[in-house]
Design a protein around this nucleic acid. Structure first.
Length: 261
DNA sequence: ATGCCTTGTCGCACAAGA
């Protein structure tokens, strides 16, 4: 069972790129973020043509998440619980099932939070608190569970080529990092770090200032596994080759392989 | 110090991203 996540930065601008990577990489489940379109505008038919079921939680112009899955959806739950007045489309949770049993996957687009000291940063921290509470709740189900997406958090200095540059940024604030740690320490495994302990493991390179050419990257796209999923972790990786393609997203796909049997 | 790019928008500049 291969599960991938990719902040696509606009599905309309990136459809051919997304289809090419998906057809080539054949994830069983693909979580997308920043689709930047409403539900009806998502090119569902193109992915259905590749054999995927499509779930979308969209928003006009900004944000928006989706899940594409080869197995059928048993349940589709849009929105992160805990704030019914929050209109930003940043969370979509599905349960799929098959011969492998039941698997829950969430596509997450955590708020950026910049600039620090504004209501945007407060929103980020509050959103992380809601995510932590919900993630704790989900562990009670005691079945394989994958939280995948753009967390907009650089967990450790090792996760940036130039950590000093990010010191004042919302992505690397102590308060952001502490909440990410609390989420993981609640019982999740950071799949990429479980498989790759060293430096130069990045998922994002800014469009500006030649960041890709200089490999000035950061690791902010994460895949967190419940204990029942972590026990089946076979491999994890980051597919950085897409960053060198024509008209790339500034993020690249991150994936895990689980031996669910 | 700021913008550097890129996307989507009731475009002809701007917000938002990271």
């Amino acid at each position: 069972m291969k599960i991938a996540t990719w902040n696509i930065n606009g599905i309309k601008a990136r459809l051919e790129t997304a289809l090419t990577w998906t057809a080539d990489s054949q994830p069983d489940v693909l979580c997308l973020q920043e689709i930047k379109c409403v539900d009806d505008a998502f090119p569902a038919a193109a992915f259905e043509g590749l054999g995927y079921n499509v779930a979308v939680h969209g928003q006009k112009g900004f944000n928006g998440v989706a899940v594409l899955a080869k197995p059928r959806f048993d349940e589709v739950r849009p929105g992160l619980p805990g704030a019914p007045e929050d209109a930003q489309a940043r969370y979509l949770e599905v349960t799929v099932s098959g011969s492998f049993g039941a698997l829950t996957v969430a596509s997450i687009y955590l708020p950026n939070g910049n600039p620090v000291g504004t209501e945007k940063f407060d929103y980020k921290l509050a959103w992380m608190d809601r995510l932590s509470a919900h993630a704790r709740h989900l562990l009670g189900e005691e079945h394989p569970l994958v939280l995948a997406g753009d967390f907009n958090v650089i967990p450790e200095p090792l996760d940036a080529r130039n950590p000093d540059k990010w010191a004042a940024d919302a992505l690397f604030q102590p308060a952001s990092r502490a909440r990410y740690r609390a989420l993981v320490h609640g019982g999740y495994t950071d799949a990429i770090r479980a498989c790759h302990a060293g430096p130069d493991v990045f998922s994002f390179w800014d469009y500006q200032a030649g960041s890709w050419q200089k490999n000035d990257g950061i690791r902010i796209d994460h895949v967190l596994l419940s204990p029942q999923a972590a026990d089946r972790l076979a491999a994890a990786g980051i597919d950085r080759r897409t960053r060198g393609w024509e008209k790339p997203s500034d993020h690249v796909p991150v994936w895990v392989e689980l031996d669910l049997g």
